[in-house]
Write a protein that binds this DNA or RNA. Structure first.
Length: 297
DNA sequence: ATGTGAACCTGTTCGC
DNA sequence: TGCGAACAGGTTCACA
């Protein structure tokens, strides 16, 4: 479940069902799931054994469990769900999923934590934590693989004015900047299209050509739409995007642009259009969000 | 340095 | 019905 609201739904599930428990053992299926773990899958599995889960934290689309190993400093089990990753809390007796890549058992013999990923763009890594210099909210620190990720709009340390300045300084299409996790994190293809629809700006407009207030408004809409989606349990089009209990969110009913090709814009009635952008799809209202002249990526 | 596009995977849906 | 093409919510890396 890829974008910020869906990842946050998963984080909350982990907080409820996993935090506080002691891992007994981890089993990894195949090496690919641990490819971001420098020391390899065997090392990862070994290091997870007997660690206690202290917390579940998140920045943008990155999720991590803060672990207390028996004789070491706290470490972060960083999880990225990629395009199709799932974390599921399930009884040990539940049949293994077709794309099951990792299983964590706990000393309390309660439900397992499973990592399932059809397209295997996601994965796990155990890494050190670095002190968080950007502000509060991440008391245990930030994992090394997350250091290059900018704060997301729902974090207290999100510096709206600084992000606006950075956006303004780029000679890049607005949507590309919204998707740049090093500028502002958590926004993916769905919420970028929704934020742009709400802000009534075309994603191919260059950030350098927009005013700072206009850029700020786009960021505000991005934060709003992600908060709204979170309130609905996220966006799920199918069983691939579910919470730790396998349940779908229902924000898909509230989408105004994404996936609405041909449907009338709820604001003006013009047919929502789809176009190719950065090797993927953009959806927008051609009347409310007039396209700039030249095509830019 | 900065901006752009393709690659990494598997599964499902679309069009002829 | 069959089969290839297009498409899917993300990130990274090579190249201009």
């Amino acid at each position: 479940m890829p974008e910020l609201p869906e990842v946050e739904v998963v984080r909350r599930g982990l907080e409820t069902h996993v935090v506080g428990r002691h891992i007994r053992a981890a089993r990894l299926t195949g090496a690919r799931v641990a490819r971001r773990h420098v020391a390899g899958p065997a090392d990862l599995a070994a290091r997870l054994a007997d660690a206690q889960v202290l917390a579940a934290d998140r920045r943008g689309k990155y999720l991590w469990l803060v672990l207390q190993p028996p004789a070491d400093d706290p470490q972060a089990l960083v999880v990225h769900l990629g395009m199709s990753g799932q974390l599921l809390v399930e009884d040990a007796g539940a049949p293994p999923e077709k794309h099951l890549h990792a299983t964590l058992d706990f000393h309390d013999d309660g439900p397992q934590l499973r990592f399932v990923d059809q397209r295997t763009f996601g994965g796990l890594a155990l890494t050190p934590l670095q002190p968080d210099r950007s502000g509060d909210g991440h008391g245990h620190g930030i994992p090394e693989p997350v250091l290059h990720i900018a704060p997301d709009p729902l974090e207290e340390s999100f510096d709206r004015a600084a992000v606006v300045r950075r956006m303004k300084g780029k000679d890049v299409a607005l949507k590309r900047v919204l998707l740049d996790q090093g500028v502002v994190s958590g926004i993916g293809n769905i919420y970028a299209d929704e934020a742009l629809w709400r802000a009534q700006v075309h994603g191919r407009r260059l950030t350098s050509g927009l005013t700072k207030p206009a850029l700020g408004r786009v960021l505000d809409h991005a934060a709003d739409v992600m908060r709204d989606a979170l309130g609905q349990g996220g966006t799920s089009f199918d069983a691939l995007y579910v919470n730790v209990n396998g349940a779908s969110g229902y924000f898909d009913r509230s989408l105004e642009a994404y996936g609405q090709t041909g449907r009338p814009c709820r604001r003006c009635g013009a047919a929502i259009r789809r176009e190719e952008f950065m090797n993927r799809s953009s959806h927008f209202c051609p009347r409310c969000q007039p396209a700039p002249r030249a095509r830019r990526g």
